[in-house]
């Protein structure tokens, strides 16, 4: 049994996004966090001071631990943002502002 079978899910066609350059399959309706969890990824940020890995913690948009860079924009809450075809998802290092500047 898996969660999709449990809920009798018949999702729309899967699509591809990238996470740190590698392709990841995602389902329509999933958040960025759910798609990454389904792909076995549990961390996508390194903290500003200690550089420690973080991922989902509260899962409902309150704790801001799951911040991630999506399509060049840092500080998106992965647990709230729906994943879209072609999204370029990247681990957010620190504030993520440095990568954002380079992306411009």
């Amino acid at each position: 049994m898996n969660p999709l079978e449990l809920a009798g899910a018949r999702p729309g066609p899967a699509f591809t996004v990238t996470f740190d350059g590698r392709p990841v399959e995602a389902l329509p309706g999933q958040t960025v966090a759910a798609a990454l969890w389904a792909a076995g990824v549990t961390s996508w940020r390194s903290t500003r001071s200690q550089g420690r890995p973080r991922g989902v913690f509260c899962g409902i948009g309150v704790c801001f631990d799951c911040l991630v860079t999506v399509n060049g924009l840092p500080n998106r809450r992965a647990c709230l943002v729906p994943v879209r075809p072609g999204d370029v998802i990247a681990t957010q290092d620190g504030t993520g502002q440095e990568e954002a500047c380079h992306a411009d």
Partner: peptide, 22 residues
């Protein structure tokens, strides 16, 4: 703070809303 440690409610929210497990 290790990835893989989530709130109980967070695990439930991700399951109910995204059909994903930690």
């Amino acid at each position: 703070t290790l990835p893989g440690v989530v709130t109980a409610g967070g695990a439930q929210a991700m399951l109910k809303g995204g059909l994903a497990v930690p």
